[in-house]
Design a protein around this nucleic acid. Structure first.
Lengths: 146, 146
DNA sequence: CAAGAATCGAGAACGATTCTCATTTTCAAT
DNA sequence: ATTGAAAATGAGAATCGTTCTCGATTCTTG
């Protein structure tokens, strides 16, 4: 199996930050690439068959997040879920299940995304701050809870 | 000082849920009414002069949230902040500081809010789920961190 | 191969939150 | 007003996600 393009981008970015892309970390990112939404440390550990101890897992997630490869998402019960950063996975938004707390990615059609972006810039201008990013969270029920 | 309209709405809603609106809880909600963004249990305790033990404070926040009077907001470091529910305070969005994690309320002009609402409905239709709410989070830096 | 840097693994430590339980307060019916 | 049931309180222990510590291990580079 050939190393994917995303994998090479990650390796490059981590290298620039002096962070090693070990096999354990590759397993983490490939699990996230295969996911359709953010994953918590516990979820990843299960997904990876308990192969990685929690302490290492948390450290790797933190290191890769501060290197800009992963993006954290704070959910209910104090659980932090991670997903690929936007420059790797593309800009998208989240559907948060009000029952189980799971998070699915949703994408906005380009036209709507453009509208939203303008909207955020307008708000930022009026509030005299710089918008460095934005996230739209839609609350609903996931397929499992519907 | 006359009991405010919001206070009466809260009392009524809590009463319907079989939840008592004690003086301690009134102090909590009035602190939230006076706030310009969500507040954590620790922040509220400070704001209230340590008059309410944390265990009671957490319980009151949880009870009032499940009665629909307060809305939780999950931030970094596993901290949950609460604010008045939308039917009490009006619909608004959040400016989350990427440095200190503080959250300020921001309001969208009516026209933009209408646009955003349509946008969310469109996404929900296409994804075959019901949008029960939405929250736009703009990331930036608060006044203190700017 | 050797030295230094980064990572790993196991367990302890931490901090926000929740739980337990005995006591106290509130509300409603009498 | 009195009383009894339901709900809330306060103090502390317990829980749980996460972070830290530290000795052992694995790169990477010369």
């Amino acid at each position: 199996m050939t190393t994917s393009s995303v994998d090479q981008q990650i390796r490059s970015r981590l290298g620039d930050a002096g962070v090693r892309y070990t096999t354990g970390r590759q397993r983490v990112t490939s699990a996230l690439v295969a996911s359709d939404g953010p994953r918590s440390a516990a979820e990843l550990q299960t997904q990876l068959g308990s192969a990685i101890p929690l302490s290492s897992l948390y450290r790797s997630l933190a290191v890769m997040a501060s290197a800009g490869v992963l993006a954290p998402h704070h959910g209910s019960q104090g659980v932090t879920r991670y997903e690929l950063a936007e420059w790797l996975s593309g800009h998208h938004h989240h559907l948060v299940c009000i029952d189980c707390g799971s998070v699915d990615d949703i994408e906005l059609p380009d036209a709507l995304e453009a509208t939203l972006h303008e909207l955020v810039d307008t708000v930022a201008d009026e509030g005299h701050f710089v918008a460095l990013g934005h996230a739209l969270e839609v609350e609903g029920r996931c397929k499992a809870c519907k």
